[in-house]
Amino acid sequence: MSTATRVKATILVRPKEGILDPQGQAVEGALQELGFPVTAVRIGRVVDIELDTADADEARAQLERACEQLLANPLIERYEIAVER
């Protein structure tokens, strides 16, 4: 089997600490209604991505730029990039 020429990655985008997350609050309230002992919920976003490169480091560098330019708004969100090796 030849080496894959694509890199898979997962990006987590979360609201920064201190940023009000009304969606998380609403879900927190609903979970409490259901009887779950929930004390905090924050909701972010998962982006599964495949890149047309075989180089994981290159992929990470590309994804850093993608996050800064589009996938996250650095003013209000932070992100984590996990590249599958």
Binding site: P22, Q23, L75
Partner: peptide, 16 residues
Amino acid sequence: CEAGLLPGALRPNTSL
């Protein structure tokens, strides 16, 4: 705001 031509960001209304 997203383009960086104005400061700040617009978030979902706190009331949702």
